[in-house]
Amino acid sequence: MKHSKISNLAFTGLLAAMALVVFVLEAQLPPLTPIPGIKLGLANIFTLFALYFIGPMWALTLLIVRVTLGSVFSGQMSVFLYSMAGGLLSYLIMRLLYIRMKEDRIFVVSVFGAMAHNIGQILTGVLLMQTPALFYYLPVLLISGIITGLFTGLAAQFSIKALKKSPISDSP
């Protein structure tokens, strides 16, 4: 993609707005399971999309904006630290895998990103609550991360594949 800085900025802003809507809607769903930390993670579709379609720094910007505003909008400031720690660790892993993985392996990047997100959350919980018992949740959280990460990754992968074929991606 050879887009100008301004069109990248506008595109990232658009993605951030969409990611926020999805994030807030997902937060309104009743808990899927009685396990804290298990969620679909649909907002990560937009981070992955930005990583591969616009560029790594834009994806990081998108992530920070989404986590910060998402915590404000969903009224759950208590989970801000968990989201941020999970998000940044997840970004780090996805950024490293991005170097090796092409666009037909985004689902792999996504699965490892989701697992890193869960590990970041648990570490934050253990540090904040001083409760090593939280590590008991790690296997269950990682299993959920593999499954949800696979599907969010495929969603991002198919979106990019479709958009690359469309005339939109050629316009400046």
Binding site: P30, P31, T33, P34, I35, P36, G75, Q76, S78, V79, Y82, G125, L128, M129, T131, A133, L134, Y136, Y137, V140
Partner: peptide, 30 residues
């Protein structure tokens, strides 16, 4: 009175691989 009420959705405590946790209130029951 936490926002997510994950702790009430947990139901009774059955084993220690699944402690009852209320993250907003820093509470663990095991």
């Amino acid at each position: 009175d936490c926002p997510d009420r994950v702790c009430t959705a947990h139901g009774p405590l059955t084993d220690n691989s699944m402690p009852i946790i209320c993250l907003p209130h820093h509470l663990v029951i095991r």
